Simulated scan of single mutants.
Amino acid sequence: MLTGHRMSRRSRRLIGLALASLVLAAAGAPRPAHADTDDLQVRLMAETLLAQDITKGHGVTVAVLSTGVDPHTRTRSGTLRPGTDLVGLPHPKRLEGTLIASFLGGSRLSSDLPGLAPAVDILPVRVAPDDGEHGADDWWGGSRVCDALARGIRYAADHGADVELVSAACWGYDYEQKQMETALDQARSRNVVVVAPNEPVGDGDWPPLPAAVPGVIGVGTLAKDGTRWSKFSAKSSVTLVSAPGARTPGVGPGGRPGWTFWGVPPAVTWVAATAALVRSEFPHLSPAQVAQAMAVSAHHPKNGYNADIGFGVVNPLQALVAAKKIEARPAPLTAPGVPDSAHFGRPGTIGAVRHDPALLAGLGGLILVSAGALVATVVRLRGGRRTGEAAASYPWTSAT
């Protein structure tokens, strides 16, 4: 018992982790990975909000390797750092990257976007163009994709990133593979956690880079029914954990609310945010230990692991509990494995549209209801003690 003094921030957090473990144990076994995605999103946000009672990501810089972030973006409490443009095409839209930033760090312009890790600083690194930009088709059709991704990984590592969120994938031959491995070695030497999609790429059985390189946290994307979304996620052992890619609210460039986006970017953002929360609370964990904490704490499928969804659905709250337990343990020798046979298609961006504000408010309400139920349990315990295809139904660059 602590008397006569205020508990330290670290003590309060450790107690919070112990309570979190009790809460989820009392709630029963994790739900199966094929649970309804709408319910899954609500549960994930509830778990994230509880994790934020422990840490909101203070002291962590997340590099967003995407299509660029609008310089006027204002997250909840973190800062938007100066970044770089490795694409070189004029008049960037910066749509995908801005939506990712608003989901990751929240938005001061929308009370319904609390942010998955609202205190992180964001380092924008433009490594790809948005669909519809002048010259984008030629850019994607060239050999610059892997080069831009590798340079982006190196740039982020050199400029203080703790976590790198990579929203695109590429494929290549020996040169591209070596180039990517060299960039990731540099990131690993600086203790940077790299999160990337297990996204279909290429015209054959090509492993998606950088996710297929050992040491990277490969992310699977879940469809609305909670199963692997084959359009955005390959079936292979590259996937460590998965997250929903369902429609997700965001604030676009110029501070314009009313966007939704889906596919790889929201799924990767869920996982990168969890990594950022773990790294904020346990800054001395190696990237392999962060990956281990997320793998052992995921909502596991029946057999513990499968090539569709990896170790299961990411669990932000329990990842912190697991990280505390392995804080003093040695890191595992390897991370996610080598890809199994799969069919890959061209890397793409996201689907996104402007949406009715009622959708945003409705999701916020569902989040609050679910979070309220879990928070009430904590209170009682404390009281007792992208493919690039434009589908006709959602032209992602158009407004409604």
Rank of each mutant, 00 (worst) to 15 (best):
K56W: 01
P71K: 07
L99Q: 05
R74I: 07
R76G: 00
T48S: 01
T67A: 13
G83D: 10
L113R: 00
L80M: 11
L44Q: 00
M45S: 06
E47S: 09
L86H: 03
D38Q: 09
S107E: 08
T37D: 11
K93I: 07
D53I: 00
R74H: 10
L123D: 03
L109I: 12
D39F: 13
G105A: 15
R94Q: 14
H58P: 00
P124K: 06
A128L: 05
A63N: 12
G59N: 04
V127W: 08
L113N: 02
D70Q: 07
L40V: 09
L123I: 10
A128S: 11
K56D: 05
D70R: 07
P82G: 07
V60E: 01
D53W: 03
L123E: 03
L89E: 04
G68A: 06
S102K: 06
T73N: 05
G97R: 10
H72W: 04
V62M: 07
V87E: 05
D121Q: 09
G83Y: 10
V125Y: 08
G105H: 04
E96M: 12
Q41N: 04
R43S: 09
G59S: 06
V64S: 14
S110C: 13
T37M: 13
R94G: 00
T37L: 12
T84C: 04
D121F: 05
L89C: 06
A46N: 04
S111D: 14
V125F: 08
Q52Y: 06
V60A: 04
R108Q: 14
D121S: 14
R81E: 12
F103G: 01
A63T: 14
S111A: 14
F103V: 10
G59E: 07
T84P: 01
T98P: 03
L44G: 03
P90T: 08
L123C: 07
R43P: 00
F103N: 00
H72C: 08
L65N: 02
I54M: 12
D70Y: 08
